[in-house]
Design a protein around this nucleic acid. Structure first.
Lengths: 133, 133
DNA sequence: CAATTTGATACCTTATAGTGAATCATATAC
DNA sequence: GTATATGATTCACTATAAGGTATCAAATTG
């Protein structure tokens, strides 16, 4: 959440000639959510890869953050794992995020996913750009 | 909506050895939503491109569907245009989609965006894969 | 109507995803 | 303890995004 507001400030800086900080990585909460979803299905990376018709090496690279796939590739992974990406106006984000959290709280098998969704997001973000850049 | 269910059937076919149909394009509803969001701000592709620190040619390619950007690149575009991507479990998609629609209905300046979000999605999808593939 | 803007397109180079196959170190299963 | 599975990694190649610059045809502006 805080992250979104900081991006807003960056937008204002852009108007003054500053370049935004390029992301260059999939947010770790998304990566973790996808790993969890895969494991909950009892699939290995090889299982998922063959379902998608792509190489296991890519699943590994994507999950670890070493590869940032094209949007279409990621979307297909996301959908294969029973999720979807929804384009949401920024001011709706908190509501939708909480909906998603509440929904997972209601799913016995997916309840464990909730803390990863929020906490890991804030924890991993400041660290991993350093590793990648 | 219907599109999501057809993908579900494809998933079942994968278990029987069929490859899923690779997307290779950003859904047109997303592209249109982004174009609308940009125009609502009175930005040209050049304006948006300079805010993002990338070339106008890329904005053009992405908006037209000729280029499928990496997820991080698209996410940055999305956020610069006041939106965000939320990872949503599939069975929550209808609710979230309707939330997004209702929210746009409530925004006077964004009310026009609603029909494009739903109608164009269904209309463009069957046509554009043929153009691209 | 001339000047400017706009989005599409072309050219070129670099970086990285995508593809296929294989191997490795470690973990897991039995 | 052995066999198997798993995720990470390597090698090599192709495809395409990313990046920069410029131009063009059409639209828009004033």
């Amino acid at each position: 959440m805080v992250m979104y507001y900081s991006v807003s400030y960056m937008e204002n800086d852009v108007l003054k000639g500053f370049k935004p900080l390029r992301q260059k990585i999939i947010p770790s909460d998304i990566r973790h959510a996808l790993i969890d979803a895969r494991k909950k299905r009892g699939w290995s990376q090889r299982d998922l890869a063959s379902r998608l018709g792509i190489g296991q090496r890519h699943i590994s690279g994507i999950e670890s953050g070493k590869i940032v796939p094209r949007y279409d590739t990621l979307l297909e992974i996301v959908r294969t794992l029973g999720h979807d990406f929804i384009l949401v106006p920024r001011d709706l984000v908190p509501l939708v995020q909480s909906l998603v959290r509440d929904h997972q709280k209601d799913q016995p098998g997916e309840g464990d996913e909730r803390p990863l969704y929020a906490a890991e997001y804030d924890d991993d973000r400041p660290q991993e750009p350093h590793d990648e850049v």
